[in-house]
Design a protein around this nucleic acid. Sequence first.
DNA 1: ACCGTAGGAGACGCAAGCGTTTCTTATGTG
DNA 2: CACATAAGAAACGCTTGCGTCTCCTACGGT
Lengths: 233, 233
Amino acid sequence: MTDPTGQSSSWLDPYFCPAGRRRRGPALEQALYSATLGQLAEHGLGAMTMEGVAAAARTGKASLYRRWSTKEDLVLDAVGCAMPAVEDYDSSTGSLREDLLHLLSQMATFVNGPNGQIVRSLLCGAEPGHPLLEMARTRLIDPRLHRLVRLIEQAVDRGEARPGSATPTLAQVGPAIAIHRFLLFGRVTEDDVAEIVDSVVLPLLQDGPRPPHAEPPAAPPPRVDRAPVAQVH
Amino acid sequence: MTDPTGQSSSWLDPYFCPAGRRRRGPALEQALYSATLGQLAEHGLGAMTMEGVAAAARTGKASLYRRWSTKEDLVLDAVGCAMPAVEDYDSSTGSLREDLLHLLSQMATFVNGPNGQIVRSLLCGAEPGHPLLEMARTRLIDPRLHRLVRLIEQAVDRGEARPGSATPTLAQVGPAIAIHRFLLFGRVTEDDVAEIVDSVVLPLLQDGPRPPHAEPPAAPPPRVDRAPVAQVH
DNA sequence: ACCGTAGGAGACGCAAGCGTTTCTTATGTG
DNA sequence: CACATAAGAAACGCTTGCGTCTCCTACGGT
């Protein structure tokens, strides 16, 4: 993908510009965003450098500093451009299972591509409260969570999901498992998506809440005041 | 926690050594591990430096390089020391809910403490296949997953969980959601743990698989061959 | 065709980290 | 107590990145 100097290979880079030629304005800007995202994915937030970005974009540092005075500003803008909006915000296939597969597949495709490493960098390279993490949350996570809740609501109306199951907590389950697998294994496969939907999410949304079993084993207490839980240090 | 030079505050550092005194052998080694973990948590894998570690441990770089020739070796050893073994591997409280709360609370406590930032660094600072990520998986994640499966098996035997629910896929759900919340919000609270157990994991493990509802909505097809799912680019 | 703007290229001095080396001296073992 | 060992401290030359600056020229509008 990149040669030792960090420059993009000409035959693959959509923003490639032959030597001697010059990009200006928006074209250059897009190339800089692209280079920034590449460096972010390759080196992580902490180790990426302005020089690396300039070299990858085949431009000088001056063009960078003319637009953004700090690495934070640059990364914030570049990442903002890479965040895809929720597609088909109000559409539904009419089948809960189809809707879930569709949405999780979109996530998987996004995360399996070059942007996956960027998501990784954002989730982990930035401590809580960092603007980059906030951006990932408000632009990537929250809209999809909201959309999922709506899809579940519609499924409830159709009788496909148990009443009361359209909560953020339950909607979060599928994405959380998908992200978990991505972080551990580097990708989310087609089989992963199907398994998450069929083995976890659908049972959770469809099955009634605690239907009494053959022999109800002294139905576990609804609440217990255990002490040693989750203290922040 | 640290002053501008990265040195540990004397009144808090368990490995503090007054100026003029010298630590040797294992004592020094522990201090170096501690300093390494601190730097790792503070700056991330990419941006931490050997000089920073030496300064934080109040020693010279020579003592570092005498033991580890690269940053990778150092971090690998230091992180290995920080990975807690699974406690009470074979014990069970006799209640599935109690067992789940207990195990997730242990995870939450670990992750809420100073080691949380290290988990973050490992999950995200290292791409798939990196030895550090492998170590996190084999030492932190997998043992707990295995233990969870055993706990669920015991619950199945007691009639507390649905037969067939003791699978790695289902066992993964609780930890995945906990880690997800940790990554997004920086901590996992007592309420989070209780909510995960009571709203997600227990229903999933206890409710029967698709008990026919009032009007079974044309039971969703068990398998569908959707095309555009999760391609690796 | 002209010309003001801004892009590319790279040099600048500075700071930080690298990995090595040297020198002094605290340490704990025999 | 004497001594071999290894710790602390700091300097070494080197590399990389910083942010600024300058020079020259390609670009695109008039």
